[in-house]
Amino acid sequence: MLRFLGHRLIVSLPTVFLITIFVFVLQKLLPGDPVLAMAGDDRDPETLARLRDLYHLNEPIWKQYWLWLVDAAQGDLGRSIRTGIPVSDMIAQKLPVTIQLAIMSMIFAAVIGIPAGIISAVKKGTATDYVANVVALSGLSIPNFWLGIMLILLVSVKWQLLPASGYVPFFDDPIQSLRTMVMPAFVLGTALAASLMRHTRSAMLGVLRQDYVRTARAKGLSEREVILRHGFRNALTPVVTLLALLFGELIAGAVLTEQIFTIPGFGKMIVDAVFNRDYAVVQAVVLVTALGFILMNLLADTAYFLLNPRLRAG
């Protein structure tokens, strides 16, 4: 197990290295003098010189990268140009908000998507399967920011059931926190549920064709037992891997969802940073998201390893 994890970690290192180069190069895409762009309206020569010094812009480019990398590796992702707050502190403050949103959406997606996928696979070719597929494809095609606007119009404005925006930390007031997050979680979870349904269906179809499923039926097990114990347990492995891959979609979806529902999370941070021309924050969000994705993949590989007895034995 440790050897497996160690190997996966070493394999991810070149990817992490390339991501850091990419994130560093992003800053160099800025047209014109980056310091002028960073300083915004402040054209005071002293400020410009200080910024040039702060970002080591007088050094050769490889040295700039190296100094940036050393700082980033120590958790120093720079400071927000607007507020002066260290970017790592901003991320630490915003991330829990998005994690709560992500967990709630994942629960919603799993509760809807997995059973729908199983039912659709078991009833392949029937009207139920067809309807489930159409609903799933619609879920994938609906722009989530539009779904959000429509829900606000209906649920908050017309029926006045739930608040249209805002955020209450879960531990301050759990009920109010859930009330503010239900709609955003539904909006973010819709496309995930659709993805999850389609993948569960295809994994289940693959498994249900296997000989051991036929054997299970032949020995007289109930259909329920065949599907859940022999079918779903084996289809679970690719679904778990997919959950990790959905992490990217989740963060990207959070950007728009948080924007619509004015939730002060990690996703809204990148949009605010873009409009404030706070490039250090944009870079940090990209870096942290990519590292998060690699970590999720590592966890998925580990889960795959633990769920698959053949790999464990080998």
């Binding site: 992003l26 895409l29 800025l30 490039y279 998201t289």
Partner: peptide
């Protein structure tokens, strides 16, 4: 392949937002 993996690690929309932000 390594470059592809690195780019794939950044979610599609986040990458597009970051690039659009830096390109204008």
């Amino acid at each position: 392949s390594r470059c592809t993996e690195a780019l794939l690690a950044i979610p599609f929309l986040i990458l597009a937002i970051a690039l659009a932000a830096f390109l204008g």
